[in-house]
Amino acid sequence: MQARTLPAPRGWMWILDGFALWKRNPALITFLVFGYWFCLLIVAAVPFIGQVLMSLAMPALSLGIFNGCKAVAEKRKAGPEILISGFKQNLPEQVKIGGIYLIGTLVVLGLTALADGGILAELMLGKRKLDDATAEDPALMFSLLIGTLGSTPLMMAYWFAPLLCGWGRMSAVKAMFFSFVACWRNWRAFMAYGLGLMIAVLIPGLLISLLGLLSPILSTLPAIALPLIFIPVVFASFYANACDVFDHIGPDDAA
């Protein structure tokens, strides 16, 4: 599996490509994205094992969104049921990806706990509120650095893995390896992509804040509309960068 090495400006284009894809069928892509989050919330609510089940189901559900984006890109008809289509594509390996990602996340949280006594882990799990004293704790800053350094390679390994596993019929370990390599080769484009997403949030956010100073009522509608548009566009941009980095993802590539 060969991943192309793209120039940094391609990261900006992924956002534009994602927006263009979303515009083709905003209803379907928006439904798939928020349906994805709704399904994860329902699974996470299962007593005792909800968090584990959520992690295991996440790759297959995310693959359903990619299948929907692919159908929109190819101008094929697709309905809401495509959200669960990822469960029919190499499911055992998809579950393994979720398990590996969960274990990696727990390891990273364990390392941060050694640095701050578990403050960051409790904040992430909702067991502690972020007050002024906690925010100013030097141990928390150090654990945030550890968490960032530890979670970045884990996210790189996960980024393309569901697609490579589902469409390329790869094993979980192989898919995560190729995903990491692809992200590493394109770190410049991903830096530009991350910067572009930050700007795409900050500028509308500032405009909404200014509008709120003039009229809180007038700012309500764009404040609601922004996440309803921005979040699906971001997910569509995930599909765009996968298609850009890998010219084709299929069983032939896996061979």
Rank of each mutant, 00 (worst) to 15 (best):
I231C: 14
L130H: 12
M156R: 11
A78L: 11
T152V: 15
F230D: 03
L202R: 10
K174T: 12
F31I: 11
A223K: 09
R24Y: 02
I97E: 00
L214F: 00
Y36Q: 05
C243L: 04
S215P: 08
V234R: 01
A223R: 09
A189T: 05
L114E: 12
P26F: 06
A236E: 07
I29N: 13
G104H: 12
T134V: 13
I119Y: 04
Y36T: 09
I224H: 08
V245Y: 02
K127I: 00
L109A: 14
W37L: 15
P80G: 04
F177H: 00
S209V: 09
A255T: 05
K70T: 07
G18K: 09
R169C: 04
S209N: 05
C183E: 14
L109R: 14
D132A: 12
L163D: 00
D253R: 05
A133L: 10
K96I: 06
V108S: 14
Q51S: 11
W187N: 11
A113Y: 04
S237A: 14
V33N: 02
A113K: 13
P216S: 08
V33E: 00
G18Y: 09
L6R: 12
C183M: 15
K127W: 04
A135T: 03
L197K: 07
F160V: 09
L109C: 10
I217C: 01
G118T: 14
D137K: 11
L40I: 12
L21M: 04
F160C: 11
V181S: 15
V201W: 03
D244C: 01
W12H: 02
K77L: 06
F31G: 05
F180D: 03
A3F: 06
L226Q: 08
L41Y: 01
R128L: 15
I224L: 14
G147I: 05
E74G: 00
G205D: 06
L53I: 13
T220M: 14
L28W: 00
D244S: 12
F238C: 05
L53M: 13
W22H: 04
A44Q: 10
M1W: 00
L228G: 04
I82K: 03
A115M: 14
C165S: 15
I119E: 14
C69Q: 08
I100P: 07
L41K: 02
A3T: 01
G79C: 03
K174Q: 13
I82L: 02
S85R: 03
F87M: 06
L154M: 05
L195Q: 06
W37K: 13
P92R: 09
L53S: 11
G250S: 15
I217S: 10
R76K: 15
L53R: 08
Y193Q: 08
F38E: 05
S179C: 09
M176E: 08
T148W: 10
Q89F: 02
C165F: 03
L40C: 12
A115S: 12
N25L: 03
G118F: 10
Y193S: 13
L21G: 05
V233A: 15
F235D: 11
V173G: 09
D137M: 00
E74R: 05
F235Y: 15
R128K: 15
I217H: 03
L154F: 04
G194L: 13
D247K: 10
G86D: 04
W159Y: 13
R128E: 11
I199R: 12
S55V: 10
L218P: 15
A57G: 09
A121R: 15
S215Y: 07
